[in-house]
């Protein structure tokens, strides 16, 4: 992969020039010490030293609510919605990049999702290696501390400068207004060192105590383990663990009719398999009525089924579900360790 470096004194000028030419989304501070992706108005707003974003960048690829099509029953006209604005997202962490790569795989599977793919084509990604991790993160052990595809540019903080990996041609174009230099031997050394230190950023208390290759089998063998029932007792079925997850992609489709009662829109909105109505089918029957069945299902999706479907665990270790779950039952770390018999 081609690489360049940019001095930190030059960096803000580059971001400022991107803001002038691109529709830039960046990682920014939110209230209570939290961070979120939002429209970047100045280079000073960018917080590449963040730990984790409240919501993963998937909200720009699969928005919480989006129009699929508009219709008019009087004229029998149906128009697909295809208003995909080009955007450049700055500050995506490796685990979230893995999340996006998984969504890419899912949505370009047998059933090609035109809305997702249409949007994805118009999204440029400038990723960054983390310098901090939230207290709940465990990406150090999920194989998601590094990422080698999906991005256009990737930044690594190496002291007074950023190391830049160039992933694509459009990434290279984004660099045009930047005052960059070729990477020296020392830069390459520092980059390697920063990379190898990445795994020490998550807290040691968040260790996965088993080999992650064994996870699917561990879960399969524990389909009837008491953990599901026990934890689900305090589950709200609030879906928070689904909705904040960078690899959850489920949605519900609804009709939104206009007041003239002839025109309307078909919209899709985020859904989640923890919600009670999720598994209700047309006949009214709910095939995962019990909280514990839904609770187990989510874990099996992450740790077993998606591995079979796309070849990767659908948990990238961001820790968002664990931090969002108020009864504190959604945490994959404690679940994996407990099922492996390695919980202390």
């Amino acid at each position: 992969m081609k690489s360049r470096v940019i001095l930190k004194v030059e960096f803000p000028h580059w971001i400022a020039s991107l803001i002038k030419t691109e529709n830039v989304i960046g990682i920014k501070a939110k209230e209570a010490g939290k961070f979120h992706f939002g429209k970047l108005r100045s280079s000073g707003e960018l917080r590449l030293d963040y730990d984790v974003a409240v919501l993963p960048p998937k909200k720009y690829l699969q928005p919480p609510k989006e129009d699929l099509l508009s219709y008019n029953i009087a004229s029998f006209k149906v128009t697909p919605s295809a208003d995909f604005q080009p955007i450049t997202i700055i500050g995506v962490h490796p685990y979230d990049m893995h999340g996006i790569n998984q969504m890419d795989a899912v949505f370009s599977d047998e059933n090609k999702d035109t809305n997702y793919l249409g949007r994805r084509k118009n999204v440029k990604i400038i990723g960054v290696d983390p310098v901090k991790a939230s207290a709940w993160s465990f990406w150090h052990d999920m194989g998601t501390a590094y990422v080698d595809k999906g991005f256009d540019l990737w930044l690594t903080d190496i002291g007074d400068r950023y190391f830049i990996e160039i992933g694509t041609k459009s990434g290279e174009n984004l660099l045009k207004p930047a005052k960059t230099e070729s990477a020296s031997k020392i830069d390459i050394e520092r980059h390697k060192k920063a990379r190898s230190g990445l795994k020490n950023i998550c807290s040691p208390s968040r260790r996965i105590k088993t080999d992650i290759k064994k996870i699917p089998d561990i879960f399969r063998a524990n389909h009837d383990h008491g953990l599901w029932e026990k934890r689900a007792k305090t589950c709200y079925s609030c879906g928070s663990c689904n909705l904040v997850c960078p690899t959850c992609y489920c949605f519900d489709v609804r009709e939104d009719m206009e007041l003239n009662l002839t025109g309307g829109r078909r919209v899709r909105v985020w859904d989640g398999c923890m919600l009670e109505e999720f598994a209700r089918v047309g006949s009214g029957e709910n095939f995962r009525k019990e909280r514990s069945a839904r609770f187990r299902h989510r874990f099996f999706r992450k740790m077993v089924y998606m591995k079979e479907k796309i070849g990767a665990l659908a948990c990238v270790g961001c820790g968002r579900c664990a931090s969002a779950c108020l009864p504190d039952i959604a945490d994959p770390v404690t679940a994996i360790n407990e099922l492996s018999g390695l919980e202390d």
Partner: peptide, 10 residues
């Protein structure tokens, strides 16, 4: 028929 948390997250 789901909790407000869903909309909060969205």
């Amino acid at each position: 028929d789901y909790p407000v948390c869903v909309e909060c997250k969205m």
